[in-house]
């Protein structure tokens, strides 16, 4: 059984790594959760973002960070639902519930 993997994203320049690692982990049958915070939330506006939401088991962003990046919290990015506009508790959930972890 493949291990589960949590990915914590703070730097939008790492988007290609987020996609690359998620694709590779899903190909191994892993459960993958991704949480974006601070400027990492800019990734939610990328054309490929909905594809990540389809691929990963759980994707959420920090709503407070998203707002600080200049977006309206009511402007929920394609691929997410309102409840996935989360808090830092999502990062805590990754650390507690997932076997492996990488920050990007």
């Amino acid at each position: 059984m493949a291990k589960s993997l949590g990915i914590f994203v703070t730097n939008p320049d790492n988007w290609r790594h987020v996609m690359g690692i998620t694709k590779a982990a899903k190909a191994k049958g892993s459960k993958v959760k991704v949480f974006f915070t601070w400027s990492g939330t800019k990734c939610a506006k990328l054309d490929e973002f909905p594809a990540l939401c389809e691929l990963a088991d759980d994707v959420s962003i920090c709503a407070d960070s998203y707002k600080k990046m200049g977006y309206e919290v009511t402007d929920v990015p394609a691929g997410l639902t309102e409840k996935e506009m989360g808090t830092q508790a999502q990062h805590g959930a990754i650390l507690e519930d997932y076997e492996c972890y990488i920050n990007l």
Binding site: L5, G20, A24, A25, C100, Y101, I102, N103
Partner: peptide
């Protein structure tokens, strides 16, 4: 980057620091 190999190494490690 070889993401497939990276994920294998992440699973093999006790701790990953990026």
């Amino acid at each position: 980057p070889d993401y497939d190999a990276l994920v294998d190494k992440i699973y093999d490690a006790d701790q990953t620091i990026c």
